[in-house]
Amino acid sequence: MNNEANVNEQEQATVENEQDLQQENAAPEAGANASDDHVEGAAEAEAAGNPELESLRAEAAEHQQRLLRVQADYDNFRRRTQKEKEELAKYASSKLISELLPVFDNFERALAAGVSEQNDPSSFVKGVEMIFRQFEGVLKAEGLTIMETVGQPFNPEYHQAIMTVEVDEYEEGIVVEELQKGYMLKDKVLRPAMVKVSG
């Protein structure tokens, strides 16, 4: 019986201790919340009574708005520039094609005239030669040049060797024959020349 009474007393003491601890823990939290509210209220009161702080806040808000406007302007500029680049890439060849249209027209006229009994074949050939010169002129104006290959030392940057041949008149490693012309566009190889090289 005494044992049961002791156990009950211990349980009662434990419950009371836990309640005391909960009350102690709750008290600082309540105090902290009250303290935070007090600090915020004091800050607001101080801001309301401090014109310099209000001025700084207004200036910060103005800078924020200005930053947002600059960001929007930059985004618009970037989109516009991207669109212009796409347009430029899409129609980059329009100038060259415009210059080639007269050549195309002349070829069409030559084919329509053809070679008949009334037309002299030599005049037809002369007409085609004139068109070729016109076409060549357009390409040269755009910076296209023909490579000089025969008699030049073989250079893999400019020449594509198809075969090597034994030739007495050239030293080894010299281009002896051109099978297909090579072209430069300004200072860049557009198409390497196809050549035979002395071995």
Rank of each mutant, 00 (worst) to 15 (best):
E52G: 08
A60P: 01
L56K: 07
A45T: 09
D37I: 07
A32K: 14
G31L: 06
V39L: 10
S55I: 00
H38M: 13
G41D: 05
N33H: 13
L53F: 09
E52Y: 01
A48C: 10
H38F: 05
G41L: 02
A30R: 04
A42I: 03
L53N: 02
S35T: 13
S35C: 09
A45I: 05
A30Y: 05
D36Y: 05
A43P: 01
A30W: 01
P51I: 01
A43Q: 09
R57W: 10
G41M: 04
P51S: 09
A27D: 06
E40R: 13
A42E: 03
A42D: 06
E46S: 11
D36E: 13
A45C: 14
E52L: 09
E29R: 08
D36S: 15
E54Y: 00
R57K: 09
A42M: 08
A61D: 13
E46Y: 13
A27I: 04
A30N: 13
A26Y: 01
A30H: 06
A47H: 11
E52H: 04
S35N: 15
L56H: 06
A47Y: 14
G49T: 07
E59L: 05
P28V: 14
E40Y: 11
G49C: 04
V39R: 09
V39G: 03
A45K: 14
S55H: 00
N33V: 12
E29C: 07
A61K: 03
E29Q: 15
A32T: 11
A42N: 11
G41H: 01
E44Q: 09
G41A: 12
N50W: 04
N50H: 05
A60Q: 06
A45P: 00
E44S: 10
A34H: 00
D37R: 06
D37T: 09
P51F: 05
A42P: 01
E44D: 11
E46M: 08
A45S: 13
A61F: 00
A60L: 10
A32E: 13
H38V: 14
A27G: 10
D36F: 06
S55A: 10
P51E: 11
E44M: 08
G31R: 09
E52A: 14
G49I: 03
S35Y: 05
A61C: 08
G49M: 09
A58V: 03
E44T: 08
A61M: 01
E44Y: 04
A43R: 04
A45R: 07
V39S: 05
A45L: 07
A32V: 11
N50S: 12
S35P: 01
H38L: 13
A43E: 08
N50M: 02
E54W: 00
G49N: 10
D36V: 15
A26C: 10
E40C: 11
D36H: 07
A61Y: 02
P51N: 07
A30I: 06
